[in-house]
Computed example of a mutant assay.
Amino acid sequence: MAEMDTRTPRERYRTQVRAEIKEHAWEQIATTGATALSLNAIAKHMGMSGPALYRYYASRDELITELIRDAYRSLADTLHSASLAGADLTVLAHAVRGWALAHPQRYLLIYGTPVPGYHAPDAITLISSEIMAILLDACAALPSDSPATPFDAHLADHRDWADGHPAPPAVLHRALSFWTRLHGVLSLELAGHFTGMGFDPALLFAAELDDLSAHRGDGGPGD
């Protein structure tokens, strides 16, 4: 049985308007970028006055925070679903790429150029930590007999970013290698830098996955 909506008509209307504002914000980000996001432009597009829109979002930063939170939550939920279905690291990586291609503006907002002067609140940091925890769990499940590296030793004492995850330094290293290299490929693809180069970015992404798996699993050249 569907849960009854106990909100008042005013509350439902407010939720609807806020959702519409966010949709217009995403459209604006797609054409002009997050740094040019303008609440007054959104208000004009919606046939509202600037002061009227500010009753729904008190500031540009508040709107950006909600957009970033939505983007991180969407990606985290995608990876949670894949993980619960038994996805390994490779499947999770392809899930990230699939999400990014389906939502390029959301991806670039959270992994592209930071918005000048903006600082994410702790609630958003917690969601990004969920994503990293899923990646760390998947990396920990992979077999590895790689010798320790100087960076492994460094990570033994520099692991705050892992938010208390018990993974050993070698797993932290593997996770960072996957995260940085795969985001590098995705960022270039979504920004259009592969356009006209004549190769399939999906195959490059898969090749990077294969290379990372081999190098961190058998003591190969990546160690």
Rank of each mutant, 00 (worst) to 15 (best):
A71H: 03
E23P: 01
A162D: 11
S49H: 07
K44T: 08
L135W: 09
H158R: 12
F194D: 01
A214M: 12
Y111T: 02
A36G: 04
W26E: 00
T35K: 13
L188G: 11
I124T: 09
H215L: 13
A138D: 02
F205M: 04
A207F: 08
S213C: 07
L108H: 00
R18D: 05
P116F: 08
A43F: 03
W161G: 02
A95Y: 05
T6M: 13
Y56P: 02
F178Y: 15
S146V: 14
H103E: 12
F178S: 01
A58L: 06
A30P: 01
A153G: 08
L75Q: 09
P147M: 11
Y72R: 05
A141L: 10
A87F: 05
P121M: 06
M197S: 12
T35A: 14
Q16G: 06
S128V: 05
A140W: 04
W161T: 03
H193A: 15
R55N: 10
D163I: 09
R18G: 05
R216S: 15
A138R: 03
F151Q: 07
Q28I: 00
P9L: 11
H158Q: 13
E62R: 09
M197V: 05
D152G: 09
I131T: 13
I29H: 00
R69H: 11
H154E: 07
H45D: 11
P168A: 13
W26N: 00
T113Y: 05
A34M: 03
D5K: 09
E189W: 11
W26I: 00
W179D: 14
L79T: 04
T195Q: 15
S213D: 10
H165A: 09
G117Y: 03
V171D: 03
P51W: 05
T149F: 09
R97H: 08
S128A: 15
E130V: 07
M1N: 09
E189N: 11
W26A: 01
D210E: 15
H24F: 07
P104K: 04
L109I: 01
I134R: 06
D157H: 15
L203A: 15
I124K: 08
D163N: 14
G222Q: 08
L39S: 00
R73G: 07
F194W: 11
M48E: 00
A100I: 06
G112C: 06
V171R: 03
D218A: 15
H173Y: 10
G192F: 03
I42A: 01
V96H: 02
R174L: 07
S129V: 06
D70R: 01
R12G: 06
A102C: 05
K22E: 14
L182T: 10
L39M: 08
A52R: 11
L135A: 14
H183N: 15
G33K: 04
S38W: 04
S81D: 12
S187G: 12
H215A: 14
G217R: 05
S129I: 04
S81P: 02
I68W: 00
I134A: 03
G222L: 14
H173R: 15
D122V: 13
A133G: 09
